[in-house]
Protein backbone atom coordinates (compact mmCIF):
# COMPACT_ATOMS: atom_id res chain seq x y z
CA UNK A 1 0.00 0.00 0.00
CA UNK A 2 2.96 2.31 0.65
CA UNK A 3 3.88 2.03 -3.03
CA UNK A 4 0.37 3.05 -4.04
CA UNK A 5 0.53 6.27 -2.05
CA UNK A 6 4.02 6.97 -3.32
CA UNK A 7 2.68 6.84 -6.86
CA UNK A 8 0.16 9.48 -5.86
CA UNK A 9 3.10 11.78 -5.27
CA UNK A 10 3.59 11.56 -1.52
CA UNK A 11 7.12 11.25 -0.10
CA UNK A 12 8.02 7.85 1.37
CA UNK A 13 7.48 8.83 5.00
CA UNK A 14 4.05 10.30 4.38
CA UNK A 15 3.00 7.34 2.26
CA UNK A 16 4.23 4.91 4.89
CA UNK A 17 2.45 6.73 7.69
CA UNK A 18 -0.81 6.97 5.75
CA UNK A 19 -0.79 3.34 4.64
CA UNK A 20 0.04 2.13 8.16
CA UNK A 21 -2.81 4.14 9.65
CA UNK A 22 -5.23 2.83 7.02
CA UNK A 23 -3.96 -0.70 7.67
CA UNK A 24 -4.53 -0.30 11.39
CA UNK A 25 -8.06 0.94 10.81
CA UNK A 26 -8.72 -1.87 8.32
CA UNK A 27 -7.83 -4.38 11.04
CA UNK A 28 -9.13 -2.65 14.18
CA UNK A 29 -12.59 -1.71 12.94
CA UNK A 30 -13.53 -5.19 11.66
CA UNK A 31 -12.14 -6.66 14.88
CA UNK A 32 -14.42 -4.37 16.88
CA UNK A 33 -17.39 -5.31 14.73
CA UNK A 34 -16.43 -8.97 15.14
CA UNK A 35 -16.24 -8.47 18.90
CA UNK A 36 -19.75 -7.02 18.96
CA UNK A 37 -21.14 -9.88 16.91
CA UNK A 38 -19.21 -12.52 18.80
CA UNK A 39 -20.54 -11.31 22.14
CA UNK A 40 -23.99 -11.85 20.65
CA UNK A 41 -22.96 -15.28 19.37
CA UNK A 42 -21.53 -16.17 22.76
CA UNK A 43 -24.79 -15.28 24.48
CA UNK A 44 -26.84 -17.15 21.90
CA UNK A 45 -24.74 -20.33 22.14
CA UNK A 46 -24.70 -20.12 25.88
CA UNK A 47 -28.46 -19.65 25.97
CA UNK A 48 -29.06 -22.53 23.58
CA UNK A 49 -27.03 -24.87 25.77
CA UNK A 50 -29.01 -23.78 28.81
CA UNK A 51 -32.31 -24.24 26.90
CA UNK A 52 -32.98 -20.51 26.93
CA UNK A 53 -33.63 -18.11 24.06
CA UNK A 54 -30.87 -15.58 24.64
CA UNK A 55 -31.05 -12.05 23.26
CA UNK A 56 -33.96 -11.89 20.83
CA UNK A 57 -35.60 -8.49 21.23
CA UNK A 58 -33.35 -5.81 19.70
CA UNK A 59 -33.33 -6.11 15.90
CA UNK A 60 -34.00 -9.28 13.90
CA UNK A 61 -33.09 -12.32 16.08
CA UNK A 62 -31.63 -9.88 18.61
CA UNK A 63 -28.71 -9.20 16.26
CA UNK A 64 -28.40 -5.58 17.39
CA UNK A 65 -28.24 -6.47 21.09
CA UNK A 66 -24.50 -5.74 21.42
CA UNK A 67 -24.90 -2.35 19.77
CA UNK A 68 -27.77 -1.49 22.08
CA UNK A 69 -25.61 -2.51 25.05
CA UNK A 70 -22.76 -0.42 23.68
CA UNK A 71 -25.02 2.61 23.36
CA UNK A 72 -26.30 2.05 26.88
CA UNK A 73 -22.85 1.96 28.53
CA UNK A 74 -21.78 4.88 26.37
CA UNK A 75 -24.54 7.03 27.83
CA UNK A 76 -23.84 6.03 31.42
CA UNK A 77 -21.79 8.02 33.88
CA UNK A 78 -18.23 6.92 34.62
CA UNK A 79 -17.99 6.57 38.36
CA UNK A 80 -14.53 6.78 39.90
CA UNK A 81 -14.40 5.70 43.56
CA UNK A 82 -13.10 8.47 45.80
CA UNK A 83 -10.39 6.24 47.30
CA UNK A 84 -9.20 5.07 43.90
CA UNK A 85 -5.97 6.11 42.28
CA UNK A 86 -7.70 8.09 39.57
CA UNK A 87 -5.13 8.09 36.75
CA UNK A 88 -4.30 4.42 36.98
CA UNK A 89 -7.95 3.56 37.47
CA UNK A 90 -8.76 5.11 34.11
CA UNK A 91 -5.59 3.96 32.32
CA UNK A 92 -6.10 0.28 33.22
CA UNK A 93 -9.07 -0.44 30.90
CA UNK A 94 -7.35 1.50 28.13
CA UNK A 95 -4.28 -0.73 28.49
CA UNK A 96 -6.39 -3.89 28.35
CA UNK A 97 -8.21 -2.70 25.27
CA UNK A 98 -5.16 -1.39 23.41
CA UNK A 99 -3.07 -4.47 24.09
CA UNK A 100 -5.88 -6.70 22.85
CA UNK A 101 -5.85 -4.86 19.52
CA UNK A 102 -2.05 -4.49 19.21
CA UNK A 103 -1.35 -8.17 18.73
CA UNK A 104 -3.45 -8.28 15.56
CA UNK A 105 -0.66 -6.41 13.75
CA UNK A 106 1.21 -9.62 12.95
CA UNK A 107 -1.68 -12.00 12.23
CA UNK A 108 -1.59 -12.94 8.52
CA UNK A 109 -4.94 -12.89 6.74
CA UNK A 110 -3.57 -14.04 3.39
CA UNK A 111 -0.13 -14.39 1.84
CA UNK A 112 1.33 -10.93 2.31
CA UNK A 113 -1.85 -9.45 3.79
CA UNK A 114 -0.48 -8.55 7.20
CA UNK A 115 0.11 -5.18 8.80
CA UNK A 116 3.65 -5.89 10.00
CA UNK A 117 5.39 -8.85 8.37
CA UNK A 118 8.20 -8.96 10.93
CA UNK A 119 10.47 -11.96 11.34
CA UNK A 120 9.94 -12.09 15.11
CA UNK A 121 6.14 -12.17 14.80
CA UNK A 122 5.57 -14.88 17.36
CA UNK A 123 7.87 -13.22 19.89
CA UNK A 124 5.94 -10.01 19.33
CA UNK A 125 2.72 -11.83 20.18
CA UNK A 126 4.33 -13.28 23.32
CA UNK A 127 5.54 -9.80 24.31
CA UNK A 128 2.15 -8.21 23.74
CA UNK A 129 0.24 -10.94 25.53
CA UNK A 130 2.57 -10.57 28.51
CA UNK A 131 1.47 -6.92 28.66
CA UNK A 132 -2.16 -7.95 28.99
CA UNK A 133 -1.72 -8.71 32.66
CA UNK A 134 -0.99 -5.06 33.48
CA UNK A 135 -4.49 -3.87 32.69
CA UNK A 136 -5.92 -6.36 35.16
CA UNK A 137 -3.31 -5.81 37.87
CA UNK A 138 -3.52 -2.04 37.67
CA UNK A 139 -7.30 -1.99 37.73
CA UNK A 140 -7.26 -4.21 40.81
CA UNK A 141 -4.71 -2.09 42.61
CA UNK A 142 -6.06 1.31 41.55
CA UNK A 143 -9.60 0.44 42.62
CA UNK A 144 -8.35 0.42 46.21
CA UNK A 145 -10.91 -2.16 47.13
CA UNK A 146 -10.59 -5.65 48.54
CA UNK A 147 -12.13 -7.95 45.96
CA UNK A 148 -10.63 -6.28 42.89
CA UNK A 149 -7.25 -6.57 44.60
CA UNK A 150 -7.65 -10.31 45.26
CA UNK A 151 -8.75 -10.72 41.69
CA UNK A 152 -5.75 -8.82 40.36
CA UNK A 153 -3.39 -11.03 42.34
CA UNK A 154 -5.12 -14.16 41.13
CA UNK A 155 -5.06 -12.90 37.56
CA UNK A 156 -1.36 -12.12 37.53
CA UNK A 157 -0.46 -15.48 39.06
CA UNK A 158 -2.71 -17.28 36.60
CA UNK A 159 -1.55 -15.44 33.49
CA UNK A 160 2.15 -15.80 34.32
CA UNK A 161 1.73 -19.52 35.02
CA UNK A 162 0.06 -20.25 31.74
CA UNK A 163 2.33 -17.97 29.73
CA UNK A 164 5.22 -20.28 30.64
CA UNK A 165 3.61 -23.33 29.09
CA UNK A 166 2.30 -21.30 26.14
CA UNK A 167 5.90 -20.25 25.54
CA UNK A 168 7.06 -23.86 25.34
CA UNK A 169 4.14 -24.81 23.10
CA UNK A 170 5.02 -21.99 20.73
CA UNK A 171 8.64 -23.14 20.72
CA UNK A 172 7.52 -26.56 19.44
CA UNK A 173 5.71 -24.87 16.54
CA UNK A 174 8.64 -22.59 15.84
CA UNK A 175 11.03 -25.54 15.80
CA UNK A 176 8.85 -27.35 13.31
CA UNK A 177 8.36 -24.31 11.07
CA UNK A 178 11.95 -23.09 11.44
CA UNK A 179 10.78 -19.50 11.68
CA UNK A 180 9.18 -16.96 14.01
CA UNK A 181 7.35 -15.30 11.15
CA UNK A 182 3.65 -16.16 11.26
CA UNK A 183 3.28 -16.24 7.47
CA UNK A 184 6.20 -18.67 7.25
CA UNK A 185 4.63 -20.76 10.03
CA UNK A 186 1.36 -20.97 8.10
CA UNK A 187 3.12 -21.82 4.85
CA UNK A 188 5.10 -24.58 6.59
CA UNK A 189 1.84 -26.37 7.39
CA UNK A 190 1.06 -27.23 3.78
CA UNK A 191 0.59 -30.79 2.68
CA UNK A 192 0.68 -33.19 5.61
CA UNK A 193 0.42 -36.71 4.15
CA UNK A 194 -0.07 -34.98 0.80
CA UNK A 195 -3.58 -33.68 1.42
CA UNK A 196 -3.96 -32.08 4.88
CA UNK A 197 -3.01 -28.53 5.86
CA UNK A 198 -2.25 -27.90 9.50
CA UNK A 199 0.26 -28.69 12.22
CA UNK A 200 -2.58 -30.20 14.20
CA UNK A 201 -2.49 -33.27 11.94
CA UNK A 202 1.09 -33.89 12.97
CA UNK A 203 1.04 -36.49 15.77
CA UNK A 204 3.92 -34.72 17.54
CA UNK A 205 2.13 -31.36 17.51
CA UNK A 206 -1.47 -32.46 18.02
CA UNK A 207 -1.12 -32.67 21.85
CA UNK A 208 0.38 -29.18 21.71
CA UNK A 209 -2.68 -27.94 19.82
CA UNK A 210 -4.98 -29.25 22.54
CA UNK A 211 -2.79 -27.82 25.30
CA UNK A 212 -2.65 -24.48 23.52
CA UNK A 213 -6.43 -24.38 23.33
CA UNK A 214 -6.73 -25.01 27.07
CA UNK A 215 -3.91 -22.61 27.95
CA UNK A 216 -5.55 -19.97 25.77
CA UNK A 217 -8.71 -20.32 27.83
CA UNK A 218 -6.68 -19.87 31.00
CA UNK A 219 -4.71 -16.98 29.55
CA UNK A 220 -7.84 -15.08 28.57
CA UNK A 221 -9.48 -16.02 31.91
CA UNK A 222 -12.44 -17.63 30.21
CA UNK A 223 -14.56 -20.24 31.94
CA UNK A 224 -13.64 -22.76 33.34
CA UNK A 225 -10.63 -20.69 34.41
CA UNK A 226 -12.46 -17.43 35.13
CA UNK A 227 -11.31 -17.29 38.75
CA UNK A 228 -10.41 -13.64 38.31
CA UNK A 229 -14.10 -12.77 38.18
CA UNK A 230 -15.55 -15.64 40.15
CA UNK A 231 -18.80 -13.97 41.15
CA UNK A 232 -19.48 -16.23 44.10
CA UNK A 233 -16.18 -15.23 45.72
CA UNK A 234 -15.08 -11.87 44.34
CA UNK A 235 -18.24 -9.99 43.29
CA UNK A 236 -17.08 -9.19 39.73
CA UNK A 237 -13.35 -9.45 40.24
CA UNK A 238 -11.18 -6.62 39.01
CA UNK A 239 -14.13 -4.99 37.22
CA UNK A 240 -16.13 -4.53 40.41
CA UNK A 241 -15.58 -0.78 40.73
CA UNK A 242 -15.91 -0.02 37.02
CA UNK A 243 -18.89 1.44 35.27
CA UNK A 244 -19.92 2.67 31.83
CA UNK A 245 -17.23 2.95 29.11
CA UNK A 246 -14.38 1.90 31.38
CA UNK A 247 -16.23 -1.34 32.02
CA UNK A 248 -17.08 -1.68 28.34
CA UNK A 249 -13.41 -1.34 27.41
CA UNK A 250 -12.57 -4.29 29.67
CA UNK A 251 -15.38 -6.24 28.11
CA UNK A 252 -14.32 -5.44 24.54
CA UNK A 253 -10.67 -6.10 25.32
CA UNK A 254 -11.51 -9.46 26.83
CA UNK A 255 -13.45 -10.58 23.78
CA UNK A 256 -10.86 -9.16 21.38
CA UNK A 257 -8.31 -11.26 23.28
CA UNK A 258 -10.50 -14.33 22.96
CA UNK A 259 -10.82 -13.84 19.20
CA UNK A 260 -7.08 -13.30 18.99
CA UNK A 261 -6.43 -16.57 20.82
CA UNK A 262 -8.83 -18.36 18.45
CA UNK A 263 -6.97 -16.80 15.51
CA UNK A 264 -3.64 -17.92 16.96
CA UNK A 265 -5.00 -21.41 17.38
CA UNK A 266 -5.96 -21.39 13.71
CA UNK A 267 -2.70 -19.84 12.54
CA UNK A 268 -0.34 -21.98 14.61
CA UNK A 269 -1.99 -25.37 14.43
CA UNK A 270 -4.76 -25.54 11.86
CA UNK A 271 -3.32 -23.88 8.80
CA UNK A 272 -4.42 -20.26 9.29
CA UNK A 273 -5.57 -18.93 5.94
CA UNK A 274 -4.92 -22.24 4.17
CA UNK A 275 -7.90 -24.48 3.40
CA UNK A 276 -8.00 -27.60 5.57
CA UNK A 277 -7.34 -29.87 2.58
CA UNK A 278 -4.50 -29.38 0.16
CA UNK A 279 -6.79 -29.59 -2.85
CA UNK A 280 -6.54 -27.03 -5.66
CA UNK A 281 -10.22 -25.88 -5.98
CA UNK A 282 -10.31 -25.00 -2.28
CA UNK A 283 -7.60 -22.39 -2.85
CA UNK A 284 -10.06 -20.33 -4.90
CA UNK A 285 -11.86 -19.45 -1.67
CA UNK A 286 -10.10 -16.36 -0.27
CA UNK A 287 -7.76 -17.22 2.60
CA UNK A 288 -9.38 -14.73 4.95
CA UNK A 289 -12.62 -16.72 4.77
CA UNK A 290 -10.82 -19.90 5.83
CA UNK A 291 -9.18 -18.05 8.68
CA UNK A 292 -12.52 -16.56 9.67
CA UNK A 293 -14.24 -19.95 9.58
CA UNK A 294 -11.53 -21.43 11.79
CA UNK A 295 -11.74 -18.53 14.24
CA UNK A 296 -15.50 -19.01 14.48
CA UNK A 297 -15.09 -22.74 15.02
CA UNK A 298 -12.65 -22.21 17.87
CA UNK A 299 -14.85 -19.53 19.32
CA UNK A 300 -17.69 -22.02 19.32
CA UNK A 301 -15.45 -24.42 21.23
CA UNK A 302 -14.68 -21.66 23.74
CA UNK A 303 -18.39 -20.93 24.27
CA UNK A 304 -19.21 -24.60 24.42
CA UNK A 305 -16.67 -25.11 27.19
CA UNK A 306 -17.91 -21.99 28.97
CA UNK A 307 -21.48 -23.28 28.89
CA UNK A 308 -20.73 -26.81 30.05
CA UNK A 309 -17.64 -27.03 32.28
CA UNK A 310 -17.82 -25.95 35.94
CA UNK A 311 -15.24 -23.52 37.25
CA UNK A 312 -11.90 -24.89 38.43
CA UNK A 313 -10.72 -24.54 41.99
CA UNK A 314 -7.68 -22.29 42.29
CA UNK A 315 -5.31 -25.05 43.38
CA UNK A 316 -6.51 -27.22 40.51
CA UNK A 317 -5.77 -24.39 38.11
CA UNK A 318 -2.24 -23.98 39.43
CA UNK A 319 -1.67 -27.72 39.43
CA UNK A 320 -2.77 -28.00 35.82
CA UNK A 321 -0.49 -25.16 34.80
CA UNK A 322 2.67 -25.99 36.70
CA UNK A 323 2.55 -29.74 37.30
CA UNK A 324 0.90 -30.99 34.11
CA UNK A 325 1.22 -28.50 31.26
CA UNK A 326 4.72 -27.27 32.04
CA UNK A 327 6.42 -30.72 32.19
CA UNK A 328 4.41 -32.02 29.24
CA UNK A 329 5.19 -29.06 27.02
CA UNK A 330 8.85 -29.26 28.04
CA UNK A 331 8.85 -32.95 27.13
CA UNK A 332 7.39 -32.11 23.74
CA UNK A 333 10.02 -29.45 23.08
CA UNK A 334 12.53 -32.24 23.70
CA UNK A 335 10.66 -34.72 21.48
CA UNK A 336 10.10 -32.30 18.61
CA UNK A 337 13.67 -31.04 18.57
CA UNK A 338 14.98 -34.61 18.89
CA UNK A 339 12.80 -35.76 16.02
CA UNK A 340 13.93 -32.85 13.86
CA UNK A 341 17.57 -33.55 14.70
CA UNK A 342 17.16 -37.16 13.61
CA UNK A 343 15.26 -36.45 10.40
CA UNK A 344 15.44 -32.93 8.98
CA UNK A 345 18.84 -31.84 10.23
CA UNK A 346 20.80 -34.91 9.20
CA UNK A 347 20.95 -37.11 12.28
CA UNK A 348 23.54 -37.37 15.02
CA UNK A 349 27.05 -36.53 13.89
Amino acid sequence: MTAFFQELGLPFEGAWLLSTIIGILLIALPVMLAVAMIIYADRKIWAAMALRRGPNVVGPFGLLQSFADGLKVFLQETIVPSAANKTLFLIAPIITFTVALMAWAVVPFQVGVVLADINVGLLYILAISSLGVYGVVLSGWASNSKYPFYSAIRASAQMISYEVSIGFILICVVLWAGSFNLTAIVESQKGYYGFLNGNGFNPLLFPMAIMFLISAMAETARAPFDLTEAESELVAGYQTEYSSMAFALFWLGEYANVILMCALNAVLFWGGYLPPFDWAPLYYVPGILWLFAKILFFFFVFSWVKATVPRYRYDQLMRLGWKIFLPTSLLFVFLVSGFLMLTRYGGAQ
Binding site: V120, L123, Y124, L126, A127, S130, L131, V133, S156, I160
Partner: peptide, 13 residues
Amino acid sequence: MLLVIVYVGAVAV
Protein backbone atom coordinates in the same frame (compact mmCIF):
# COMPACT_ATOMS: atom_id res chain seq x y z
CA MET B 1 11.31 -8.59 21.99
CA LEU B 2 13.27 -10.44 24.68
CA LEU B 3 13.53 -7.22 26.66
CA VAL B 4 9.77 -6.83 26.61
CA ILE B 5 9.02 -10.51 27.27
CA VAL B 6 11.54 -10.99 30.08
CA TYR B 7 11.63 -7.61 31.79
CA VAL B 8 8.17 -6.22 31.16
CA GLY B 9 6.37 -9.54 31.05
CA ALA B 10 8.00 -11.30 33.97
CA VAL B 11 10.42 -9.26 36.08
CA ALA B 12 8.34 -6.10 36.30
CA VAL B 13 5.18 -8.08 37.03
